[in-house]
């Protein structure tokens, strides 16, 4: 039962990781790629770690993994924001409909 739940979480997380990488390839410019990478990767990582926690059961290792989830959910948006801020300051123009891909 617990293992089934864990594998569901792991598969959902894996799906989001793949979507993040695909978005990094498919989307037309830097700003939109950040959406795929920043959102889907954070979410996929969290889901996979939740699956591992369920697989591990109650132990100190599971608590450590939970701390890792918290750390990732705090720092990952910040790193994305830092990169985004740099691109904006350097004057990268956002892509609009009708422009060619960059």
């Amino acid at each position: 039962m617990m293992n089934t739940l864990a594998s569901i979480f792991v598969v959902i997380g894996l799906f989001f990781m793949v979507v993040g990488a695909l978005g990094l390839i498919r989307l037309p410019d830097f700003y939109t790629r950040v959406h795929a990478s920043g959102k889907c990767d954070t979410m996929g990582e969290g889901m996979m770690l939740l699956g591992f926690i369920l697989y591990e059961g109650t132990s100190l290792i599971a608590v450590k993994m939970f701390l890792l989830v918290l750390f990732i959910f705090i720092t990952s948006p910040t790193a994305v924001h830092a990169i985004m801020n740099v691109a904006h300051t350097c004057g990268t123009e956002p892509w609009k409909i009708g422009d060619e891909r960059r």
Binding site: F15, A36, P94
Partner: peptide, 24 residues
């Protein structure tokens, strides 16, 4: 809210025509 937003982004990335209209 995070889960809903993620499914939205996944739908837009996987859709063949990519229904996006970005802006600031």
């Amino acid at each position: 809210a995070i889960i809903i937003a993620n499914f939205d982004v996944a739908y837009r990335v996987l859709h063949p025509r990519m229904p996006i209209d970005p802006g600031i």
